[in-house]
Structures are given as C-alpha cells and as structure tokens.
C-alpha cells in the first residue's frame, strides 16, 4: 500500500481511499474522489505540507494527513 506522503515530487497518482473519517469527508467534498488522478507538485520544507494538482487546481495537505491517504502511483514525470 502506498500513501500520498511517500510519493516524490512529479509523481502522478490515483486516489484510492482515505482512512481518517473527518479528513475523508472534507477531501471528498473538495474533489479527491476515488479514481481521480493527481500530480504531486510541491513539498514544503521541514516536513511541511504537500501540494497536489487535482481537478485543475492546487490543493495543499499536511504531511501527517497525507499519510492517511491511500494512493496508487501511476508514473513519474
């Protein structure tokens, strides 16, 4: 199993599911639905948030929260 926090910058991945209930609802509403593709575009220094490009906008999520997001890495650009 892969989680979003592990993916390096430039990876293109697919959302699988989110383990934290509160986080899940919030992310689903913002368009992170299972099967949706995304690209990891930035990671903040000092273990700060990670930014992904999804549904044509940039979303940033804390690294800790990104650990409870299961993803599949499709390819790396």
């Amino acid at each position: 199993m892969q989680c979003l926090a592990e993916l390096p910058i430039g990876s293109i991945g697919e959302m699988v599911r989110i383990f934290d209930n509160n986080l899940e609802q919030k992310l689903l509403e913002m368009g992170c639905t299972p099967g949706e593709n995304f690209k990891v575009i930035r990671k903040a220094p000092f273990g700060g948030p990670v930014a992904i490009l999804i549904s044509s906008y940039i979303l940033s999520i804390r690294r800790e929260d990104a650990k409870s997001i299961e993803v599949i890495e499709l390819r790396n650009e």
Partner: peptide, 9 residues
C-alpha cells in the same frame, strides 16, 4: 480537529 486542507489559488 485542526485541518490544513487549503486551496492554493
């Protein structure tokens, strides 16, 4: 729960 889920416009 303190979330930080933020759009970067």
């Amino acid at each position: 729960y303190s979330y930080y889920i933020m759009e970067m416009p």
